[in-house]
């Protein structure tokens, strides 16, 4: 059992220059623990700071204050510590059209992390691992996909490659930043199910960042609702969705379309107008 823990994370961005400089607190005192084999959903609207949390966890941003702890140990900023950290914590980006280099083949994207983290040495071993990775994300026949370039694949396939790349170093924790929001609706579930399956099979800890409450509820064990940099509500996913406590969570839930409530908005508006006329 491993844990990835965030303690009192604060991230501020400097805005502007010179005298008109100001600070934007994108993440304000956020703490949570990600356990191996569990999924935590970080839910919020754009600008809530959820992506900044993801980027900080991926060490693309350095925290202004607060700590990131892997298996109970604080992670320092040294190069070797960072490499060791990245061996365990990887990220899946939102836009599979942007997160793969158009110039390189799929194989390149997978071979590099394999080599960098010493997972496989030697041409044959690397090729074998690449093939295995592609099969793990159901891109078969692997040889065919390994030779493709990003623009020859659909969004869903690209995102699978991105997931395989994140798994390549042997990561135990995955930060998935809106992993399906750029995909066509009918292939979203396929990608989410893939993540779920991998998590189950490999006991991954997943931080699922999304604005979609429905998949957050069904896909994760715990939900944290972020609003303006702060976590305003947290709890087991069913509890947060079915019995929200914070006003913001309630607003979000009321605004989210739900197929089960067809005709709701239409009828609500009619009732409102009827009420006004009466």
């Amino acid at each position: 059992m491993g844990t990835l823990e965030v303690r009192n994370l604060v991230k501020e961005f400097r805005l502007g220059h010179g005298l008109r400089r100001s600070r934007l607190r994108a993440v304000d005192d956020v703490s949570f623990t990600l356990e191996a084999g569990k999924t935590v959903a970080l839910v919020g609207e754009s600008g809530s700071g959820k992506s900044t949390v993801a980027r900080t966890l991926a060490r693309l941003e350095t925290p202004t204050s607060g700590e990131i702890m892997l298996d109970g140990r604080s992670v320092s900023g040294s190069r070797s510590a960072l490499r060791a950290y990245r061996h365990d914590v990887q990220m899946v980006f939102q836009d599979p059209f942007a997160s793969l280099n158009p110039f390189h083949t799929v194989a390149h994207h997978l071979e590099r992390p394999l080599q960098l983290h010493g997972v496989a040495r030697g041409r044959d071993a690397v090729a074998e691992h690449t093939r295995a990775l592609l099969e793990r994300v159901s891109l078969t026949p692997a040889e065919v996909y390994a030779a493709k370039r990003p623009h020859e694949m659909s969004g869903g396939q690209r995102q699978r490659v991105a997931i395989a790349r994140a798994l390549a170093p042997g990561a135990r924790f995955l930060v998935a930043d809106e992993p399906v929001s750029m995909l066509d609706v009918s292939i979203r579930l396929g990608v989410l199910n893939l993540l779920a399956r991998l998590q189950r099979e490999e006991n991954l800890g997943v931080l699922y960042i999304t604005h979609d409450l429905a998949t957050a509820r069904h896909f994760s064990d715990e939900i944290l609702v972020m609003y303006r940099g702060e976590v305003v509500e947290r709890g087991p996913s069913d509890q947060v969705i079915l019995d929200p406590q914070h006003d913001y969570t309630k607003t979000l839930l009321a605004a989210a379309p739900d197929p089960a409530r067809h005709g709701r908005l239409r009828d609500e508006v009619r009732a409102e107008l009827a009420g006004e006329r009466a």
Binding site: K38, T39, A196, H218, S220, I241, D258, A260
Partner: peptide, 15 residues
């Protein structure tokens, strides 16, 4: 599109 407040249906619960 899994339902927000309804039953899980066939949606896979991971973890």
């Amino acid at each position: 599109f899994p339902s927000l407040v309804g039953e899980r249906g066939g949606f896979v619960r991971s973890g």
